[in-house]
Design a protein around this nucleic acid. Structure first.
Lengths: 321, 321
DNA sequence: CTGAAAGCGCTAACAA
DNA sequence: TTGTTAGCGCTTTCAG
């Protein structure tokens, strides 16, 4: 306390917060001393008195992935409009980072929204009692509030679109890590379902697993061309893989979309800029972030959680098909 | 306090933090009650006792700009390795948001790193006494610790490269907002300097101001083609503008690089993927974020701030020149 | 193993 | 205008 230094007492408080009812001279003196000894009010002590701004944790796998970046933008915007703060956490897309992170997070924030796959990690946060919204994980038990993405609508459109163009051999480039996690994404399931419903057969080698990156997509395409040359259209787990695969196909001399058509998922900004522009299943990513914050707000005010938000998707047809 | 509910007293603390020296039975009972009444330890009260994790504020103009995204990734990584947290703040690239944000920020975090232009905003944070590192604003007074980007090296390479290819009429597409702020970026100054040193003339209409987006770049290119058709090479404020301009030029029938060459700045991931791949001045964006955290750490331990970090740049030649 | 007391750094209420 | 008292919610002595 500056009481020892300045001649005055806890009246420093009045000075620091420059309240009224204080002699300007005293205030200045206190402030001067405070500056000299590098005094800084404690965030926590303050937070205890004034009811501080709510701080929400946001867990995403990877900041460099434009998909999550847009979710962050949406959440940030919604948070800012409520005067809330956002603390960013990253799992580096590593399943084994989820658990330790989740265990420490509840102590740091007032509420949390997170992309998480590990059930234990999800349980850790949900069990901590803080308001919580889970993102993009549809096969989680119903006890936790969710914002989920309805890929079915868009993916069905995609399949119909390809079928209408006469494609009979439709392959898929999937996310290896996601598949390996034992909790395959809805996209994978929907691909199989849609093919069956359309009466199309699928061979195992028509599904290639890829590391989630441009190069990963290219590598998967290389294998696809070697092992399944009969495939004339490829549905990709996301735009990044689609772009990597498409570029590789072009480099290897395939004409697009004549020899092979490509469809991505997400509709990240770059997809409209590549050549040829990528046909893709559009997801309103900002809306995911916004909706998550809104659900958090609902939990915090009413106590009860509101109904899950479902983000619809739709096909955006461009030149790659 | 759970003392009223559970039969026991502040020994809940022992239970909550599951310390040793407590009867498992008692612990479980306390925990059960705590869960039932939705008890959650207060972040702040805790932070007062245990010295809590340092929380650093990170201010950037825009999360959706891949340049800043990579800076965030670098900062996040460096922060995580120290066990620090990052709170994200955004100014939405609006100069007038900087001041109010800066004034409230010091109370929320233990330290701060920020992309800021408004001198008042900078002074507000610097004056608050928290450890502070300013990013990318080179013409700020020397009193504040900085990580700055040395565009000169890379930009000089870029000019030499264009000159070596015989370009005599080199234009520039600049960032309108940055120019309008009255604090033009070093890039703008260096463009003029480099041209003079190379003995090249510059006409006013060779410098077009653009809104910082793909479309903004396209619009600026449209004006450039109309007002300065003699220009055969264009240096752009950043890759986004360059890509927008280049695409528009192609759409209008220009051959690239034969009719017009383009050079960007930043080397964001997309630049290598567009067609033709963009020649650009590479900036190590992750390093900016890392360096900022390192300088913060230096300030917090030694008290004195370490020397500013300078991020070197270099030209990456691709097919657009 | 459990309870009582003291105090973290600050602010709010009331006196002086 | 300034000082005093009390207490925010928790952890940490030190006794019981």
């Amino acid at each position: 306390m500056a009481r020892a230094t300045g001649v005055s007492r806890q009246t420093v408080s009045r000075a620091i917060n420059n309240m009224t009812q204080i002699d300007p001279a005293t205030r200045d003196r206190v402030l001067a001393v405070a500056r000299d000894m590098g005094y800084r009010p404690s965030r926590h002590a303050r937070g205890m008195m004034r009811r501080s701004t709510t701080t929400v944790g946001l867990v995403i796998p990877d900041v460099l992935n434009p998909f999550f970046t847009e979710v962050v933008a949406g959440a940030l915007e919604a948070a800012k409009s409520r005067g809330w703060q956002l603390i960013m956490y990253t799992t580096d897309s590593a399943l084994d980072q989820e658990k330790p992170l989740s265990e420490s997070i509840a102590a740091q924030v007032d509420a949390c929204i997170a992309f998480l796959l590990d059930p234990d990690a999800i349980a850790a946060i949900a069990g901590s009692g803080i308001p919580f919204v889970l993102l993009g994980n549809e096969d989680q038990a119903g006890s936790v509030s969710k914002v989920r993405i309805d890929f079915e609508s868009g993916l069905r459109e995609a399949f119909d679109h390809l079928a209408a163009r006469g494609h009979l051999h439709i392959g898929m480039i999937d996310d290896r890590k996601r598949t390996a996690s034992g909790r395959p994404d809805a996209r994978t399931r929907l691909y199989t379902t849609a093919a069956m419903e359309a009466g199309l057969r699928i061979e195992p080698e028509w599904i290639q697993q890829a590391t989630n990156s441009i190069d990963g997509g290219a590598a998967a395409m290389e294998r696809m061309m070697r092992e399944a040359p009969e495939v004339t259209a490829i549905l990709c787990y996301n735009d990044i893989l689609a772009i990597g695969a498409m570029r590789h196909a072009m480099a290897r001399g395939l004409a697009i979309p004549e020899s092979c058509a490509f469809i991505g998922v997400d509709d990240i900004p770059i997809s409209a800029l590549v050549d040829p522009p990528l046909t893709t299943v559009h997801v309103d990513k900002r809306r995911i972030g916004q909706a998550a914050i809104e659900q958090l707000a609902a939990q915090m005010s009413s106590g009860a959680s509101m109904a899950d938000t479902v983000i619809r998707t739709r096909l955006v047809v461009r030149a790659s098909t």
